[in-house]
Design a protein around this nucleic acid. Sequence first.
DNA 1: TTGACACACACACAAATGTGTGGTATATAA
DNA 2: TTATATACCACACATTTGTGTGTGTGTCAA
Lengths: 199, 199
Amino acid sequence: MAEQIELTQKQKKVLLFIRKKIKIDKLPPTIREIAKQFNFSSTGTVRDYLSTLVRKGYIKLAARRSRAIELIRPPLRLPIIGKVVAGLPDLAIEDVEGYLDLDRWLNNEDKIFLLRIKGDSMVEAGIMPDDLVLVKREVSAQDGQIVVALIESEATVKILRRRQGKVYLEPANKRYQPILVEKDSSIIGKVIAVIRKYV
Amino acid sequence: MAEQIELTQKQKKVLLFIRKKIKIDKLPPTIREIAKQFNFSSTGTVRDYLSTLVRKGYIKLAARRSRAIELIRPPLRLPIIGKVVAGLPDLAIEDVEGYLDLDRWLNNEDKIFLLRIKGDSMVEAGIMPDDLVLVKREVSAQDGQIVVALIESEATVKILRRRQGKVYLEPANKRYQPILVEKDSSIIGKVIAVIRKYV
DNA sequence: TTGACACACACACAAATGTGTGGTATATAA
DNA sequence: TTATATACCACACATTTGTGTGTGTGTCAA
């Protein structure tokens, strides 16, 4: 999808420079900034490169706007590999299941925060002590969903259970007991992801 | 740290417009684009706002460069909450442990990919079937680290164990046995994070 | 040999853009 | 009262910037 034609070495260098500039300056370069970088004495040369990069599917340009170079693949898109086949030498990444676009995934940033897990009450659900859970602020949730609730003014992560009109907060650890709560009122958010960082 | 002074309503609107432009156009606006948006007939007005936003700690400007407005807080920074106290009403986020800056966290993007977990051989380490693990491509690892290895041309996630000069790949599930491997040669990467997405 | 492509250059022009230097008015705190 | 902050405006200027229109060389496949 959105196939990208192979680039020459020089074209790659120009593209890398643009990426680098966006990363460092948080701003795409102007045509003349690119020219300066590569000692091109003409802006036309740069425009040749940019046109090529557009044609080959790596960037988009907006006419008559300064610095309007947009990368087609955003830098925060990670490939999801379903199966790693042997082969090598460059670890043939052909079985790309899809992409996780973190920008999009984490939209509504103001309603989302990370909570650090304390205790082992959710280990059987794969949520370990010190894990970070991505929490989306919400006041209600469905049966079976993992929620963040306030119990005695402490944040707890549990599974929400609705049984005969009653609401329980159920741990995922046999050594703990479910907690009966009065209403949904104590729910402050839903766990939408777990992130664990090693090292 | 990097305290930000309170903004007026109008100043907020200008800042929000800049954020929006960066998000949509992937390019900060020019002074005149801002002026147009708010029907300012003078560019000086915009510069007053920008200076104020700089002084109050929300943006940075680079002199003599078009569109060189840099947001001080990057949009992909998530607060890590250690403890959620009761209180409300806006869920007093005072116990901010720190921030997870996904941009930085995921640097070296070309050496990183996501692998989908198959099987339950790592459940006791909190890595469940269908989880995504963030893998950093590396050819060696230390004892105890969770690695991705190729066994019979299939990618497997296991714990690396070094015992008396020998290398084992150990599952985190009592129902499975450790595997003796000849050398590090089968290691293709290190697991640096686990990501699990609900719903 | 023709054509497409990669890789460079020169030069001029109009538009976009940041900057400099002034101004007015209102409100609030010292 | 004086100072400071907010919230605008006017206008000119120098640079920056994208654009247009050319030219030239070499390579490589059809």
